[in-house]
């Protein structure tokens, strides 16, 4: 029932789109019918081409995301905990943050050439900031009450970090990771539009040159679906790790009922 409710808007869009096409309101070269997009998609999948491109993009996003996660979490946690480090790096971060990942592409191509390397770098740039900022604020906004309790019991700085600050800010950290992965995914596509010879971004760009609009849209649909799946997996991870949260507890109860 719930899944049906979620799928309904998708069907509505497809239906309106198909109807517009049937009434001859769409130019086939600008926007082909959903049916021909589906056919093109199936053909691309059948030949394996689509999966090669999907795999290339996913590989890039995962590598860049992992590097951003390690680096962003470490730096965010340390600067959330230590005032002097955050004073030193926060202004620099706030200066770099508004520069969008796309704006890094020219310099990334200069530095790393074409292929995987500039894409790793662009994903890293895209994913780093949400991960860093969220882990920083997660630690920084820990409840004073909890810190007072820990101080009262004479907990060491290390115990405060591992048992109080980190688990307490885990909801925010996981949120940052999920946003970071999403931004990394959009970044990898942008990077591939100009700086790669494989991947979904490259694929839709090539099909524009060849005027195969149905392939472009099939590629875009794949990008959307992959992003949807990644977000879903991250949400699942959040639910798994945050069993102690009120909303998770409640949804577990309703699932039982």
């Amino acid at each position: 029932m719930k899944i049906l409710k979620k799928a309904l808007p998708f069907f509505a869009v497809l239906l309106i789109w198909e109807l517009l096409f049937r009434f001859g309101l769409l130019n086939e070269y600008l926007l082909p019918s959903p049916l021909s997009v589906a056919k093109a998609g199936l053909a691309l999948a059948g030949s394996g081409e689509l999966f090669l491109d999907l795999f290339a993009s996913v590989k890039r996003v995962l590598a860049g995301f992992l590097a951003a996660a390690v680096f962003g979490l470490t730096l965010g946690t340390l600067s959330g905990y230590g005032r002097s480090l955050s004073d030193a790096i926060m202004p620099l971060c706030e200066f770099l943050r508004p520069i969008p990942p796309i704006a890094w592409i020219p310099i990334a191509i200069l530095w790393f050439g074409l292929g995987d390397n500039p894409a790793y770098f662009i994903v890293f740039i895209g994913a780093f900031f949400p991960i860093f900022i969220n882990s920083y604020w997660g630690i920084r906004e820990s409840r004073l009450m909890h810190l007072n309790v820990a101080r009262n019991f004479g907990a060491s700085r290390f115990l405060v970090l591992t048992d109080v600050l980190l688990p307490g800010s885990l909801p925010r950290i996981l949120h940052g990771l999920r946003i970071g992965l999403g931004l990394g995914w959009t970044s990898v596509i942008s990077a591939e539009l100009v700086g790669a010879q494989s991947g979904l971004g490259y694929m839709i760009q090539m099909n524009r040159v060849m005027l195969k609009t149905e392939n472009i849209i099939a590629g875009m649909v794949t990008i959307g679906l992959a992003g949807l799946l990644m977000n879903y997996l991250m949400l699942l991870l959040e639910k798994r790790l945050l069993t102690w949260r009120k909303d998770t507890l409640r949804s577990a109860e309703t699932a039982e009922a």
Binding site: M145, H146, V149, N152, F153, D163, P167, W244, R245
Partner: peptide, 16 residues
């Protein structure tokens, strides 16, 4: 540690 406070509320660690 010799003077432990019990506060009015919100003093448990929610994740434990």
């Amino acid at each position: 540690r010799d003077r432990i406070v019990v506060f009015q509320e919100h003093n448990l660690f929610d994740w434990m």
